[in-house]
Amino acid sequence: MWAELAVTTAKVVVVALAMVTTVPIMVWVERRGAAFIQDRLGPNRVGPLGLFQPVIDVVKLIFKEDVTPAAANKGLYYLAPLISLGVAMVTFIVIPFGAGHDVSLFGVPLRGLIVAPDLNVGVLYLLAIGSLSVYGIVLAGWSSNNKYSLLGGLRSSAQLISYELAMTLAVLGVLMATGSLHLSDVVARQSGAVWHWNAVTQVIGFAVFLVAAFAETNRLPFDLAEAETELVAGYHVEYSSMKFACFFMAEYLNMATASALTVTLFFGGGTLPGVTLTGWLGLFVSTAVFVAKMCFFLWLFVWVRWSLPRFRYDQLMQLGWKGLLPLATLNLVWVGIAMTMGWLR
């Protein structure tokens, strides 16, 4: 009992710390990456290559004056950033970051580097919790008592219904092929070879999911809720100091979660085709592989953000309803046919 608790705690600490650490690293990558793409230097004054810039940024944010608008709805105004950050902090407990089914710690089997291995509704949990994040934005937009915030919140909810459905349908294709809601099963099914990856067998589903993931994280080209040149800063225009930092962290955590999810669902998770390792070595190697794959998608987020213009929100809805939804349905049909014909393993 105590040993199990200790193992779970250890996993929570490791995974949570790793995820939270991605935030400052990604902030640095984003800024340096943007500078690289835009042919300029980026932050390079604090520490080697400007690596300590995020630390200084955090210190700055903590010491900033925390302004609350007089006419704001105080309760919801304080609650909104917590919802955003809280939701971002709990989504990744069902993601299997590495193998390790055959190792044990303190005499307790580890059952993979996944916080909640027994949660048999893994994917459902992810989709359900992920959808909650919009409440943070909508409430922030509404409670700030600012027209720009309100428009940002409105846009966010419109955005949610336009892409969430397509995203769920795309995930459904993966679930059909797997036959399980456990994400570790999804990963296990993709092991062995690159052509077992769902990204290969369900190319359309993967494309739909990736686009929807961009929309889910509220990043360009879908950063309509924020849209700094139109809505000033959208839903968080009235937020300052650490309350703003909560939204900021949530955005980067969502990015990390979305990347991890893409890797898990479509890119074989921690598996490396043609390599089968067991024991602690297997755990470390698979985790490293997972992180490497995740880094690629994290970089993709940065890359896309600094390359594309922003959609208008009616265009996003058009894309969601008229583009992504039919495509996701098509993917489902394809998976059904492929399963019946026995083309899928």
Partner: peptide, 16 residues
Amino acid sequence: NLNDIGAMTPFLYMYE
């Protein structure tokens, strides 16, 4: 104009 539409990179190319 491009920056307002959300594309910041060409804006910085132009500024160079």
